[in-house]
Design a protein around this nucleic acid. Structure first.
Lengths: 288, 288
DNA sequence: CTACCTTACGAAGGACGTAATTATT
DNA sequence: AATAATTACGTCCTTCGTAAGGTAG
């Protein structure tokens, strides 16, 4: 279970090809073959069916573990080198799309500390969380909807410190002509049969809606894998599907119907591992 | 960051000796020295101070990661081999001390399925959780106190399925002559200055009490690292310190004062990874 | 027949043990 | 001086690449 082997196993499973995985990782196809054989011998079971390349049951199970394991390993390395390395003169802040408001404060910090360069990067939830864990980001701003006492669900990367930056009401965003647009409030569970926008990186993904409403349904409509807020709002306005939005982010062109049951809030959290000095300054500014 | 190196690093840190770590792992002291050197070169920072052997800051940080990483790796291996291996004729159930009641049902299952052997093992929370993750245990019964909506805190081993088996009221267990014994109820936060029994494997550890009460204090009195329920109750009766107990487990010799704030329950959860057929049968019986 | 995985084999590098060396108490 | 980690060095084993060999579509 050498991480090296796990990494090539994951590449093979993703690309469904030994040779393509070899190309990607800088190995010959022979080396990949030998690595997979070694891994299969190690766990004592075939992991892949060849020609065409497909996962066996055991392989599928192992694949579920590889991501978190490799991420954990990368996080450990990042954590230690950050502590050992020199104090950096740059801070990278990652933010989920709907955190748009808060980063305005970064500008003030940049003015106050002209010697360090601050850069802002917008990405999906998963990418922000893993970026923070692996040190690609110094700070992460993640938004999402949850019950007030629950934390936002983040991928498993070991403990990350989180602090609540703001909380606000959630609404179901609708185009004005939608039949529900005039309602004063709506229970999430009643919308299980509606079509929801499937934009896992930009809005609440359907799977999480099911968890929030504790009911089945919430099938996704059009899928939008990107992170652009403008596109997201445009799709909602065009009737591609419903979405949960913070009422603060609702543009005039859309209607928002408050969510009644169970009490949900839109929250943005600041998440980070160990902090460099300038990153700590930014954090302080964001939380003030 | 080869797991192999992490394992010997952890051993050296624990034993504070290269040679002792070598003995334990079956290496020469030279090999251990080379492994540590390789690891330090890999992360680019010294991890240990020599003579006496002690962790540097970077080493301490890395050590925080090694446990979860190695555990995660072991869990992955266990998960895959269980899926690949032959159906076992034995089921091992691990249980935390205060789960004493539930295992009675194991007897009935054993009678119904005489071909498979069931064995029960009592251990601390951490050991049960890691045992389930690594496959040493097929099922785990963990008890603890938490808010009704929160899960019991378990070490990070990747997702484990959990199901609530039972919930009941919590009381502060006291010897009859204790000044508080006559009280009708008490707020946890008011007991922050009391002496609490420090028995992390058998009862709620002080650190978790602080989290539950959201306040400081709760200094531990006498420490009892074992898992014997009789000893635990004896220590409480002898006045070694307070402890949180499920009211169902309170013996006649002790007084129990209900906990008023915040709403807390004692819960026992059934936790498992992938299940073998006989383990699934036991699970079904325990949950019925 | 062709794309693609596997096996064979040789070379390079890595890992461990023995033994000599150095450093700390 | 004694204890314990490091360095030197030889050996063995692992891993990769090249190239030949299978095998399914």
């Amino acid at each position: 279970m050498d991480p090296h082997l796990l990494r090539t196993f994951a590449a093979v499973a993703r690309l469904r090809s030994f040779s393509a995985a070899g190309d990607e990782l800088g190995y010959t196809q022979s080396a990949v073959s030998q690595q997979i054989a070694a891994l299969e011998q190690d766990v004592g079971a075939p992991l892949l069916r060849r020609r065409p390349v497909a996962l066996t049951d055991a392989g599928a199970r192992l694949l579920e573990h590889t991501g978190p394991i490799l991420l954990r390993l990368a996080a450990a390395r990042a954590d230690v080198v950050r502590l050992a390395g020199p104090p950096p003169a740059t801070v990278v802040l990652g933010a989920t799309p709907l955190c748009g408001v808060a980063p305005a404060r970064v500008v003030a910090v940049q003015r106050a500390m002209p010697r360090v360069t601050f850069t802002l990067r917008v990405a999906g939830r998963a990418e922000v969380a893993t970026g923070v864990a692996t040190g690609a980001l110094d700070l992460g701003l993640v938004d999402g909807v949850a019950a007030p006492s629950d934390p936002l669900p983040l991928p498993d990367t070991g403990e990350l410190d989180t602090a609540v930056l703001s909380e606000g009401p959630v609404v179901v965003a609708l185009p004005p002509e939608h039949p529900l647009a005039a309602r004063r409030g709506v229970r999430l569970a009643d919308l299980a049969d509606a079509v929801w926008l499937d934009a896992p990186e930009a809005a609440t993904p359907p799977a999480q809606l099911r968890a929030l409403a504790r009911s089945e349904g919430f099938r996704g409509g059009l899928a939008y894998p990107g992170t652009d807020t403008g596109v997201l709002l445009g799709l909602i306005a065009a009737g591609a599907g419903l979405a949960l939005l913070p009422s603060a982010a609702l543009p005039p062109a859309l209607r928002g119907v408050p969510v009644a049951e169970p009490r949900l809030v839109h929250r943005t959290e600041l998440v980070h591992g160990s902090l460099t000095a300038p990153a700590a300054a930014l954090r302080a500014a964001l939380m003030s």
